[in-house]
Write a protein that binds this DNA or RNA. Structure first.
Lengths: 180, 180
DNA sequence: ATTATATTGAACAATATGTTCAGTAGTGAA
DNA sequence: TTCACTACTGAACATATTGTTCAATATAAT
């Protein structure tokens, strides 16, 4: 990708992220993004069709990163099948705690619903691929069950953030496995 | 309240609800509401400061109704403390199934996040007041636990709606109690 | 050095927002 | 019925936002 494009794209993401941490998505105007990113109007629209597409792209970047990492570890099957509580959940939590990509800022800001939605969708896939860990003991409808697990995890993370992440990742994983 | 005010207010709610079932909140303009409700621009702004306030008021009307009903039954303590699975959950589900206030249209439309958020907030209160039913067996942080129960219920309802409400309220209550 | 492509900045039409105000009409009480 | 009150009207208004266009300029890739 052209160096200029990359630079512009990153400037837009940076400006947008900063704005998102301060005000709600709906209240952010393209004009504000232009000013903060210091780019021309036409340039913005050359990159993103609308503000909504910008958001979608941002989510992709954020979560593809964190989930690619996890998926990559799928080769190390031994990690997953050793002892309870399942390490994959712990890994995810520790990953978040490290705050790669400054993802936490966005998960805990006023706009967190936007990102948590994407988070959940990616989680569902992950859980589908690890039915051995999350076994459906009560023969509930499988999509209902998977959705429940995903939501429970997302809410666990949200609660953690809202409470200042005072607890260790281990404690959180423990809470999570207790409620499900 | 002046008959005219009531009429206008209801015309706005009706128009807004119809629009919400067809398109996303963000894409609805005040102009569209005016046209559909057949009222003047100035009139709208005499009633609601912004579109966001309109949404808030609509939610209040919808959920105060359903939860006031449930709270009203709190006097009939015997209903709640008889046998498991807890009847209060069943009552809520049956209440929804009757589709009072056409609440289902809004819970299942493109904008459902908006309403489910309010739904959850009201649920939390309800659950706090019925700790006898939802006892926290694993000494988890209480707000974490209450949130988990609320979310699990909201997601249960959402799943029900998304799947066409084919199952009975009893089956759903059963699913719900199995996951929590 | 040359070609290709990204960015600029300004101007543009189109649309949406929220306010104002004088005129009209429905409402509730005496 | 009369009267004072209040809500609605509708049109006009300033302001702000969106998304497009285009010729000029700057930067990148080879």
């Amino acid at each position: 990708m052209d160096r200029r494009q990359k630079k512009t794209r990153e400037a837009i993401f940076k400006a947008f992220t900063e704005l998102l941490s301060k005000k709600h998505f709906n209240q952010i105007t393209v004009g504000e993004i232009l000013e903060k990113a210091d780019i021309g109007r036409a340039t913005f629209y050359a990159h993103f069709e609308t503000k909504d597409f910008l958001l979608k792209e941002l989510c992709k970047e954020l979560f593809c990163h964190i989930f690619d990492t996890e998926e990559g570890r799928e080769n190390h099957k031994h990690i997953f099948n050793c002892h309870t509580p399942s390490p994959i959940i712990l890994h995810l939590l520790q990953h978040l705690q490290k705050n790669d990509n400054n993802i936490l800022d966005l998960l805990s800001c006023e706009n967190n619903e936007l990102f948590l939605r994407y988070f959940k969708e990616n989680l569902k896939e992950l859980i589908k691929n690890h039915t051995s860990i999350f076994e459906n003991k009560s023969d509930l409808p499988s999509d209902y069950y998977i959705n429940h697990i995903s939501v429970a995890f997302v809410e666990t993370v949200k609660w953690w953030l809202d409470n200042g992440m005072k607890e260790s990742a281990e404690t959180l994983a423990d809470y999570f496995f207790k409620v499900i």
